[in-house]
Design a protein around this nucleic acid. Structure first.
Length: 437
RNA sequence: CGGGGCGUAGCACAGCCUGGUAGUGCGCUCGCUUUGGGAGCGAGAGGUCGCAAGUUCGAAUCUUGCCGCCCCGACCA
């Protein structure tokens, strides 16, 4: 992609409304534009990142055996009256009346909707276990949206829902998602820790939050120092017992959010306890028959008798992760994207656009990178060097390749790693080898 | 929902107290000079001063109401 043909409205100065670093950088890097409080448009650069994260989440859900569906954003109130949540949910739920005076709502979550789908079609234990997920926009009318995309009112979320015959099956489904989450956050380049969580209004007895570590995170977490050295599970398939072992291994270590942490009675020795800040990006629940019972979601068991299915739900804040990743990975100059979610792989800078030799060298290098399958943002604009470097640092592509009058005669390319800052002068072939293998 | 703050050009702001023809920096356009870390000079374009009512000969400025946005707290993917 040539920058001259791209839409990248970057800002040199900090917008005043943005306090936290991810919000500031997203606005400055031209990733998003606020539409109203807590509601944003995604501009090309931001949208690319959002889509990359979404795709990784999707791939890991698919690998875990979950099936993708797509449920509507607008739901009928009657469904929520069946579970009793229409009255319980309060003002955070955006309520809408259609032209026929029917009560509708913009979904803040989809337990009712998915349980309705399940009960309409699934009648036998032979169809279990089942895990349905979707990646869809949600709306919660927060009293006070803040932190940009991290705590918006409209947000993109992956939510999965598992259905099992009994508690044992549900627990395996839960463990399966637990492990899928470890793999997902690892692929996103994040350090995530599972915290035993309060189950809150949804209820249930098995629940974990996944918190991404970032110095600027919203809440404080305490955990045993060895927790982070655990290896992320790699195998494609695990048996129920293996899943349980992995979950046990991860949850044996102490980890708690500040509201659950009791310094006086903490089981971890002071020297082994680490305190850092974090951002909640995922939440998994087992909630048994909370929805299946009022909805009459039951299946015939092997004995021919109907039994209510046991459910769980598993959320990942996809849009929030964009901010979370930036919080966890940036410096004074801008964003530092992990390779897996970077909007482009490489930024190519033509230091003297309009100069015949520079243009020719850049065009050639751009062609080779692209032919090798790299996604390249090629700054072919007529801007000044400093401006180009600063902009490239700001948008945080993992690699920068610079071609300017100084090195062009000898066919040299300067390659810089955004994260380490390390620069090296290479001839075009060596640079190509480094960047695209 | 309690408390606080702010709405003036695309962005950041000054002007308001003490009413009198709307300004600065960045960005944008054109020209010249520059050219390896957000350039210099010159010339331009761009604003019903959030909206409405009121006071006044005259309102960005004073008064009232409304709307929007931000921050702190309680609450949450």
């Amino acid at each position: 992609m040539r920058l001259s043909r791209f839409f990248l409205p970057t800002l040199k100065e900090d917008p005043k409304e943005a306090q936290i670093v991810s919000h500031r950088l997203m606005l400055r890097a031209g990733m998003i534009q606020q539409s109203s409080a807590g509601i944003y448009s995604w501009l090309p650069l931001g949208y690319r990142v959002l889509k990359k994260i979404e795709q990784i989440v999707r791939e890991e859900q698919n690998k875990a055996g979950a099936l993708e569906i797509l449920m509507p954003t607008i739901q009928p109130a009657d469904l929520w009256r069946e579970s009793g949540r229409y009255d319980d949910y309060g003002k955070e739920m955006l309520r809408i009346t259609d032209r026929h005076e029917r009560d509708m709502l913009y979904g803040p979550t989809n337990e009712e909707q998915v349980t309705d789908i399940f009960r309409s079609h699934v009648k036998s234990y032979k169809d279990l276990p089942l895990n349905l997920y979707h990646i869809q926009w949600k709306f919660r009318d927060e009293v006070r949206p803040r932190f940009g995309i991290m705590r918006g009112r409209e947000f993109l979320m992956k939510d999965a829902y598992s259905f099992d015959l009994d508690y044992e099956g549900a627990k395996t489904a839960y463990n399966n998602m637990f492990v899928a989450y470890l793999k997902t956050f690892d692929r996103l380049g994040l350090k995530a820790i599972p915290l035993r969580a309060d189950t809150g209004p949804i209820g249930g007895d098995l629940s974990h939050e996944f918190v991404v570590l970032a110095d600027t995170g919203e809440s404080e977490v305490f955990y045993h120092k060895d927790l982070l050295s655990l290896a992320t599970p790699e195998k494609a398939d695990y048996s129920s017992d293996e899943l349980q072992e992995i979950v046990d291994m991860w949850t044996d270590y102490y980890a708690a959010a500040d509201d659950m942490h009791d310094a006086e009675n903490c089981p971890v020795a002071e020297g082994d306890l680490v305190s850092r800040r974090g951002i909640e990006v995922g939440h998994i629940f087992h909630f048994s028959d909370k929805y299946s019972k009022p909805f009459g979601a039951s299946v015939a068991g092997p004995d021919g008798k109907d039994s209510i299915v046991s459910m769980g739900s598993y959320g990942i804040g996809v849009s929030r992760l964009v901010g979370g990743i930036i919080e966890a990975s940036h410096d004074d100059d801008g964003i530092i994207w992990p390779d897996s979610v970077a909007p482009f792989d490489i930024g190519l800078i033509n230091l003297k656009s309009g100069d015949e030799a520079c243009d020719a060298a850049c065009d050639e290098f751009y062609g080779k990178l692209t032919a090798a399958g790299a996604d390249v943002l090629y700054d072919d604009t007529s801007g000044r060097a400093g401006e180009k470097f600063a902009k490239m640092d700001l948008i945080g592509l993992p690699w920068q390749a610079t071609i300017g009058p100084r090195g062009v005669k000898s066919g040299m390319v300067e390659v810089k790693n955004r994260r380490s800052g390390e620069k090296q002068e290479l001839d075009m072939d060596a640079a190509l080898k480094l960047l695209v293998g």
